[in-house]
C-alpha cells in the first residue's frame, strides 16, 4: 500500500466509523427516556445535590465513579428510604461502622438525593448489577430464614459473614437478646425499643412471620 493509500484509509475509514457512531448515538438518545422513569423536579434537584457534594468522588453510580464506597445505582431497592435520609444527614450517628463523613447535607437535600437515587434504581440497566449467585440460591429456604430473606433483612444485616453493613451484625442476635418477645416488639417499633435506631418498622409482618422470624433470631448464638 502506498503512503497516500494508508493516509486515505485512515482519514476516510475514521470518518466512516464516526458516522456510524453518530447514527447509533442519535438512536440511543431517542430511546433513553423510555428506558428511565419520569424526571420530576425533586429528581433533578437530587441530581444537582449529587454533583454539588461530588458524591462520585467516592461512590460509583451505574458502576462508574471512584470505587472507594458502595455503588448507589440500586440503593433504594435494598435500603429503606427513612434509613437513607437519616444516614445522609449524619452517617456515623446512623451507622457507627460507616466511613462516610458529615458533608452538611440538609434534610431537604437528603430527601431529594433519595428521590434521585430512587430514579436511578428504576432505570433499565440491561440487568446490571446481576443478583449474586449465592443470594439467589438462599431464597429456597423455609421457616424463619425464609421470612428473613423475603423481607430483605440481609440488605442491611450480616449473619455468618453474609449481608449488608448498614445495621448491626445479627450473627449472635440470640445471645444478645434471648427473649423472642423482645424481637417482636423491636420489629414492630425499632426506634421505641433501641434509642436512635434508623431501622424502619416491620409491623406489617403477619403473626406467623413474626413468630418464625423471632425464633430464628434467638437461635443465632
Amino acid at each position: 500500500m502506498s503512503n497516500k493509500g494508508a493516509r486515505n484509509l485512515f482519514i476516510f475509514g475514521s470518518i466512516f466509523f464516526f458516522l456510524i457512531f453518530l447514527a447509533l448515538t442519535f438512536d440511543t438518545m431517542k430511546q433513553i427516556d423510555a428506558r428511565s422513569p419520569e424526571i420530576t423536579e425533586a429528581v433533578n434537584e437530587g441530581k444537582q445535590a449529587w454533583h454539588k457534594y461530588d458524591c462520585i468522588g467516592c461512590h460509583t453510580i451505574f458502576g462508574n465513579g471512584s470505587y472507594f464506597a458502595p455503588d448507589l445505582t440500586k440503593v433504594t431497592r435494598d435500603k429503606p428510604a427513612g434509613y437513607l435520609k437519616a444516614f445522609l444527614v449524619n452517617p456515623r450517628k446512623t451507622n457507627p461502622n460507616s466511613a462516610m463523613p458529615v458533608l452538611g447535607i440538609t434534610p431537604s437535600e437528603a430527601e431529594k438525593l433519595v428521590a434521585f437515587l430512587d430514579w436511578t434504581s428504576r432505570v433499565d440497566t440491561n440487568g446490571w448489577p446481576p443478583e449474586p449467585v449465592l443470594a439467589a440460591m438462599r431464597k429456597a429456604q423455609t421457616g424463619g430464614i425464609a421470612v428473613y430473606q423475603k423481607h430483605g433483612c440481609a440488605s442491611c444485616h450480616i449473619i455468618g459473614g453474609v449481608g449488608g453493613t448498614s445495621g448491626p451484625d445479627l450473627s449472635k442476635a440470640g445471645a444478645r437478646h434471648p427473649n423472642p418477645d423482645w424481637h417482636v416488639s423491636h420489629l414492630k417499633n425499632p426506634a421505641g425499643t433501641v434509642q436512635g435506631s434508623a431501622m424502619p418498622a416491620y409491623e406489617h409482618l403477619t403473626d406467623d412471620e413474626m413468630k418464625l422470624l423471632s425464633e430464628y433470631l434467638i437461635s443465632l448464638k
Binding site: F10, S14, I20, L24, T28, R35, F62, N64, D124, T125
Partner: peptide
C-alpha cells in the same frame, strides 16, 4: 497511518463497552 487508523476504527465504536449498563439500549 495504519496504526492510528485501526485505533479509531476499533476505538470509536469501542465506546460501546461503556454503554452496557448505564440505561442505554
Amino acid at each position: 497511518y495504519i496504526e492510528v487508523g485501526f485505533v479509531l476504527f476499533t476505538g470509536i465504536l469501542g465506546t460501546g463497552h461503556h454503554y452496557y449498563w448505564i440505561g442505554t439500549p
